[in-house]
Amino acid sequence: MSYGTGRQALLEAAIRVVASEGLRGMTYRSVAAEAGVSHASVRYHFGDWSTMLEEALAYCLETSASDTVLASTGPGFDGFADALIAMVTRDPDIQAFQYELTLEARRRPELRRMVERVDESYRELVRRELTRNGIDDPDVAEAVYMTLDGLVLHQTTTPDAERTDRALVALRRLLANDAAARDAARSPA
């Protein structure tokens, strides 16, 4: 491991450990073994287990929660969420890590705040993209967020890019129809 890459290697190792063993499998020793370093290195970089978990989650957000994942490639909803399948296919462990954390937060309330912050980041990306395309409705944004979350879960657990893509095409069509109806309602007759 070259200088300066230790922290990132440990974050990536923590994500892989949680994706394969669940959150309860994430220990200093398991992360160190996955990264190929001593467990003292984990303590040196993060100090405690909670900090390691929070920083791994922040790393996941940096990697997956960007405008480019949801942004339309053209006018309206053409290409909306096109990068979603590629993102999940490229690194399904990042998504599995987040789902594991979500499930564990159900059992451990002290983790709920972390999960809520993650969900809110994704919700904001959806709201921003919908508003940019003429849909400023929090309920529609929530429905789209939940739909995308379900598609990511499906793609993470049972990868089927063709099926996920068909669902995205249908979602884009629904959003385009909704935007057109809203635009027609705002236009004077």
Rank of each mutant, 00 (worst) to 15 (best):
E124A: 12
L153A: 09
R29W: 08
R16L: 04
R113Q: 15
H154M: 12
L171A: 01
D67F: 11
R117L: 10
W49Y: 08
D91I: 06
T5C: 09
Y122S: 08
M114K: 04
D119H: 13
Y44C: 01
A189V: 12
H45T: 04
S2I: 15
E162P: 03
R16V: 02
Y44R: 04
S187R: 12
R7E: 04
A32W: 03
L23A: 01
T157Y: 09
R173W: 13
I15T: 02
R24F: 09
V140T: 14
S64R: 09
V17M: 03
M52F: 02
V42D: 00
A40I: 14
S30N: 08
M1I: 12
T68Y: 12
A83H: 10
R24L: 14
L101G: 00
E62T: 11
L10M: 09
Y59T: 03
M114W: 08
A185S: 09
E142N: 11
R106K: 11
Q95P: 06
F97L: 03
V17D: 00
E21F: 06
L10T: 02
G150L: 05
T63N: 09
I85T: 08
A189I: 13
P188T: 14
I85S: 03
R132I: 14
L23M: 10
L84D: 01
G74N: 12
E116L: 08
Q155T: 03
R132D: 15
D137S: 05
G74L: 11
T68D: 15
A105N: 03
M52T: 00
S72G: 10
T51S: 03
T131S: 13
A32N: 04
V140F: 07
M146E: 15
A40T: 14
S121K: 13
S66C: 10
D67Q: 15
R7N: 06
L53Y: 00
M146W: 11
I15V: 13
V169N: 09
R113W: 13
Y145R: 10
N133R: 14
L53E: 00
V17I: 05
M146I: 11
G4R: 10
P92K: 03
L168F: 01
R112K: 07
G74E: 13
R132W: 13
R163C: 11
T68G: 14
S121L: 13
A32P: 05
A180F: 11
A185H: 07
G6L: 09
L23E: 06
S121D: 14
A181K: 10
N177G: 13
C60M: 05
A81Y: 02
R127A: 07
E116V: 10
F46L: 05
L57Y: 01
S2V: 13
V69L: 10
A141Y: 03
